[in-house]
Amino acid sequence: MSRMSTEIVAFLLSVSGWILVSATLPTDYWKVSSVDGTVITTATFWSNLWKTCVTDSTGVSNCKDFPSMLALDAYIQLCRGLMIASVCLGFLGAALALVGMKCTRIGGSETTKARLGALAGLHFLLCGLCCITACSIYAHRVTTDFFDPLFVAQKFELGAALFIGWAGSVLCVLGGLVFCLSLSEGFTIRQAQREYTYSGQASFVSMRHKPDVDSRALHVEPQRVQRDSPQRFERNAYV
C-alpha cells in the first residue's frame, strides 16, 4: 500500500473515532439504574456528565442539571475536562491531517507536510487516550459502587455512552498509529534516496578520474612490451 492510501485510511479511522468521541460527550446514558433483584420496575434512573434524570413507566422523563460545578464529585469534573480536551485535540488533529496529507495541495513542501502529518497523528493519539481515560474512570466508579456491599443507595450499571467512547478511542489510537507509521516509512524512503544520490555522485567522480589511470597504463605498457620483446626473440633464436 502506498503512502497516500495509508494516509487516507488513517484519516478515515481517526475522523470516525473523533466523531464517536464527540457524540459521547452529550450522550445521555453514561450510567443506568440497575434492575438486579427488582421484581417490578416503575422508574429508570440515568445520568451523564451534565445532568441526572428519571424516566417513569409511561416514558416521561424528568431531568435535573447539576447545580454547581464546584460541588460535583471529583471524578465527574475530571471526566468533563478529559472529554473536552479529547474533542479539541481531535479537531486540531483533523485540521492538521487535511493540510499534511500527501493527497492535498496545501501545506507547503514535503518536509513541512510530513511534520504536520506527524503532529496530526500525535493529536489523534492524545485524543484517544484522553477519551479512554475518562470513560475508564467513570466506569471504575460505577462498578465500584455496584460491587460495594456497604453502598445502600441506588446502584447503576454501565451505559451505552461508555462503550461508544471506548470504540471511538480505539479508532483514534489506531488512526494516529497508522499516521505515524506511514510518516516514518516516508522518512526512511527519503533517507535512502539521499544516500543513493550521494553514492551516485561519488561514483561519477571516480569514473571521471579513471581515464587518467588507464592512460598512464597505456603509456607504460608499450615500453614493457618493447623491452621484453628482444629477449624473447633472442631466446627463440638460440633454440
Rank of each mutant, 00 (worst) to 15 (best):
R3G: 14
V9G: 12
L12C: 14
L13E: 07
V15L: 11
S16T: 15
G17F: 15
G17A: 14
I19R: 08
L20N: 06
A23L: 14
T27G: 11
K31G: 10
V32W: 03
G37C: 01
V39P: 01
T41H: 06
A43N: 09
S47Y: 07
T52D: 07
V54N: 13
T55H: 06
D56I: 04
S57E: 10
F66K: 09
S68V: 01
A71W: 02
A71Q: 11
Y75G: 03
L78G: 05
L82D: 01
L82C: 02
M83H: 04
S86W: 00
G90W: 06
A94E: 04
A95Q: 04
A97M: 14
M101V: 13
M101L: 12
C103Y: 04
T104E: 01
R105S: 14
S109C: 03
T111K: 15
T111Q: 14
T112G: 02
L116D: 04
A118H: 05
A118T: 10
L119H: 06
L119D: 02
L119F: 14
A120I: 00
L125N: 07
L129R: 01
C130E: 00
I132T: 13
T133A: 13
A134E: 02
C135V: 15
C135I: 03
H140R: 06
R141L: 00
T144C: 02
F147T: 14
F147E: 05
D148L: 02
P149C: 10
P149G: 12
K155H: 11
K155W: 11
F163V: 09
A167E: 03
A167M: 07
S169A: 15
V170S: 14
L171N: 01
L177S: 15
V178T: 13
S182G: 15
G186W: 05
F187A: 11
R190P: 03
Q191P: 00
Q191T: 08
A192E: 07
Q193M: 09
E195C: 03
Y196P: 00
V205I: 06
R208M: 10
P211C: 10
D214P: 00
A217N: 10
A217Y: 08
P230L: 03
Q231G: 08
R232E: 01
Y238H: 13
